[in-house]
Design a protein around this nucleic acid. Structure first.
Lengths: 338, 338
DNA sequence: CTAATATGTGGGAACGTTCCCACTCGGAAC
DNA sequence: GTTCCGAGTGGGAACGTTCCCACATATTAG
């Protein structure tokens, strides 16, 4: 910068103003500075800038699992707003392991990011609270009621109810649920399922899962061992639903003729032609955008109360659900129920 | 840091040494410093540290498309080695748009990252060359022969040959290719296909595609319009293969009975039960690890010559390929060829 | 023609570290 | 008992910016 100033025959301060394109510089000098900068191949040092200005212009995003398309789609929304608002993103992955997540978070805090967005974090709420003392924090896709920690979540339980009600409406009565274990969205989805079943006077059957394809496959095996097969399965997410579906088909069941399946998240996986999975949609891009806006309010100090945003899921019907098989003998009763 | 030093009754320099766990500090003082730091909630400022030490301990990773599981799997390898070697990752996405990629790259350079790994970048080689003048650069999954730009690529053409030879071995003669357009891996895969076809004395038929699911679907429509259908299709990547497969099945073709399909990348998509796609495997995790090691050699100055690593693809056979239908009347000729 | 007001411009002190060098101090060697 | 040594410690100058304030210059009003 020193060199650029000298080459352009101005002071350091002026170069600084030009680099941040401040409007208080005359067109003439601005041009001279830019030319000198280009000639010398000068590139501002973001570290020094952040140090001096005490802000980084960076929002940290704690990503859990790069393999789950759900997160990629939320990122689309995050990126768009961040770019528009002139913020950079520092992504980091937790790889579904709490300890690694903590390390990644710590690194972001050492970088003095202006805010942190956590996607479905595994972190204990104590750790999150402590982070929030230092910098604004927004948690996405996990309910969390901590002072000064804003959240953006979908009404997971309601989504589960939509799924169950859709199946009931088709005439299903024996509806099983492959759950997501204790990962953040697991319990609320399970509760939504149980509540909807109870409301319809039906019996809940929960098979443990873990949001992974393999988990879905294993759970499907459990189902195949049941002495009376369900006619429909509501699975905690699309990935597990795909796994379960594959296993059930392999066992000779036709989907949806012999068994209906509903997933959750409506990821790109669900819309694949070969899978064509009925699924509960979350407005992912919108959620990502909302998260950035929420954190910007904090960063800019526009808001100080804690905010909790709840988005509403919808159901997307595809070819994996249909009426239960006639042979099951339940159709009429079920129709009556719907 | 000042405060911590005062609280522990030592000098700033000593605190600095403790924070970097230098061995030249007595156990007694170290303990005192750590306690003071914990009590005051002190967290070193990574910006200041980088500024003073003139290195960041960060490797920038320019990611193209978060939606493609291929990149997620490479990231697994990158993360593992980076973590083990004590480097942080600064991810950034280009979203398959050259301009955004350039912005993201510029941002990394402003941060003075210690090196940049580019995954299948769209960037012009001039831009890459310029970046390489500032900081070590490794390009992954795109051939590039620039002084001081190291590369890690799979032998794409060989992979394509494996795919074609597998189909020929099964007896196919009319084998079409849905290509990847001008995205980095498109041309080498197309050339590999053409070469293998020529070597077998067969006629190449290339349908344009773009590595996306939709592109695959559109290409499949082109195929359906052909007056003599091919009995096998080699698609430039798994995503497009899935799209094509769905469209062909919708048109009533059975896979693999009526038509065989081979993909490329062997992503998690290919192994999904419903898709079960024969695909060319790239050692993704290994490639990620290799990329980090390669860049570390540069960062540490262990090597100064430009390095080009070539990994060898393999074929993973699944249920999407089989002998051509007997009715095609070509089986015997083809068997003779194989 | 002077004073008051816009506009730009420049210098110096932060920002929170690391790095370099000079120093102290206890113990070993002569 | 002096000298020497090395482990451990402390002070001051970077690192490359931004920010604050004072200043120079040109423009306008009285």
């Amino acid at each position: 910068m020193e060199d650029v100033a000298r080459a352009a025959g101005v002071s350091r301060a002026l170069v600084s103003l030009v680099m941040r394109d401040s409007p208080l510089v005359s067109a003439d000098r601005r041009k001279r500075v830019l030319e000198a900068a280009a000639k010398l191949g000068y590139r501002p040092n973001a570290m020094a800038r952040s140090l001096a200005s005490r802000k980084t212009g960076i929002i940290g995003v704690l990503l859990n699992d790069l393999h789950n398309p759900f997160f990629a789609e939320i990122m689309d929304g995050i990126e768009e707003v961040a770019e528009r608002e002139g913020y950079r993103l520092l992504l980091s992955t937790g790889g579904r392991r709490e300890e690694r997540e903590a390390t990644a978070l710590e690194a972001m805090l050492e970088f003095r990011v202006d805010g942190v967005i956590m996607l479905s974090p595994l972190l204990s709420s104590a750790v999150v609270r402590r982070a929030a003392e230092t910098t604004p924090v927004v948690v996405l896709s996990r309910t969390m009621r901590i002072q000064d920690v804003d959240t953006v979540v979908t009404d997971e339980a309601f989504g589960a109810q939509l799924a169950v009600q859709h199946l009931i409406g088709l005439g299903h009565v024996r509806i099983a649920h492959i759950d997501g274990g204790e990962y953040p969205s697991g319990p609320p989805r399970r509760r939504g399922y149980e509540r909807a079943m109870r409301a319809a006077g039906l019996k809940s059957v929960v098979i443990p899962g873990d949001f992974s394809e393999n988990g879905g496959t294993r759970a499907a095996e459990e189902i195949l061992k049941m002495e009376e097969l369900p006619t429909a399965v509501f699975v905690a997410n699309d990935l597990a639903a795909a796994g379960a579906m594959a296993r059930l088909q392999e066992a000779g069941l036709r989907i949806p003729d012999d068994m209906s399946i509903v997933g959750f998240d409506n990821t790109s996986l669900a819309s694949l032609g070969q899978i064509s999975l009925t699924s509960v949609n979350q407005p992912r891009e919108e959620m990502g955008e909302l998260a950035v806006r929420t954190i910007l309010e904090r960063i800019r100090g526009t808001r100080t109360e804690t905010a909790h945003h709840l988005t509403t899921p919808t159901l997307v019907v595809r070819r994996s659900t249909a009426h239960p098989p006639v042979s099951s003998g339940w159709e009429e009763d079920a129709a009556g129920l719907a």
